[in-house]
Design a protein around this nucleic acid. Structure first.
Lengths: 187, 187
DNA sequence: GTCTATAGATCGATAGAC
DNA sequence: GTCTATCGATCTATAGAC
């Protein structure tokens, strides 16, 4: 127990919640201060470059979570179907079965994308590449694996948009079910 | 030619562009004034309730465009496959082959949704219902038509997110091609 | 109807006491 | 490290001249 209660990393989950709820522009430092329990002085102590650095830290945290919980399992050599199965379970948990949006996708849709271009691209490319690799190992042809990986990530993102638009999380769970069936049927 | 050059409706296309580019919160009245060529006084003359009313007018315009160019053809009784074919062509044109985002989907992802809840839901429900009807007429079972309609709209929305995230519009055109193939193969 | 000027509130960010 | 006070900029919206 070498440290005080608050470290920079401890603020990340609350920061993620605020950015997911209000977007980047809509997240005011006042709101961020209240939800993290840190005064503006403390926030600027941990994130000297302000709100942009907070969002970068959250995006890095999201990508790291997917690397550790999704991509790594997709890329581990044994049993590609286990990696894919794990991905669907992890995705369902991460997005709270359709009740939570994808922060990266949300940032991508307006000019916020331009501020975080590299991180947004990295997230989606790493996901696409890992899933493509797993599908090839599962026996898909190169082209079929590439197309199917893109199709799956497209459907996950679109299901999150439509679920939130209709305020019906089941849109998301239905999409995941279709994708699982699609994979097992097409192998 | 009964009217002056500028009517309320003439400002809608420019308003749509600004909201698509910067989102609702990110669209300042200064930017809107420049892009529409109307001073703030004129803007408040046409839209007494300010920015919210401007966004509502744009959302209504989007929904009306889809009603006239997509939903009506899907619902017209003759030849459901012509209506579906027309939908894919209209969607490809409307979203500039993946270079333009869906304003309704973008508004849905953060707390902007709460301001325009009814309009966002109406847009997606009208689309889902029209497409479901066309698929039933094409011979799909009730459940299969409902599932497939949702799958198509999910894929279109997700493809727009991923295309913009990766800055690769071809993600969108590939998704449309897959959907067309899926429909003709599954009938 | 359309403009300029500006009110009133809130923004991100900083300074300085402790 | 954490706080309060506050800066200058920017925001939406309005007032009033023309």
């Amino acid at each position: 127990m070498p440290r005080k209660i608050a470290e920079r990393q401890d603020a990340i989950p609350a920061l993620g919640e605020v950015f997911r709820e209000y977007g980047f522009l809509g997240s005011s430092l006042t709101e961020i201060s209240q939800r993290t329990g840190l005064g503006k002085g403390s926030l600027y102590h941990f994130f000297p470059n302000g709100k942009k650095e907070m969002a970068e830290a959250v995006l890095d945290d999201v990508t790291n979570w997917f690397r550790d919980n999704v991509f790594s399992t997709l890329l581990s050599s044994n049993k590609p179907e286990d990696g894919i199965q794990n991905m669907f379970e992890a995705v369902d948990r991460y997005f709270h079965s359709g009740k939570r949006v994808c922060l990266v996708g949300a940032f991508a849709l307006d000019d916020t994308r331009d501020r975080f271009e590299a991180r947004i691209r990295t997230y989606f490319c790493a996901w696409t590449d890992a899933l493509t690799t797993a599908l090839k190992r599962k026996g898909f042809s190169d082209q079929d694996a590439t197309e199917t990986a893109e199709e799956i990530i497209v459907s996950i993102q679109g299901a999150l948009v439509l679920a939130r638009s209709k305020q019906d999380p089941q849109v998301f769970t239905r999409a995941l079910k279709r994708l699982r069936r699609h994979i097992t049927a097409g192998s």
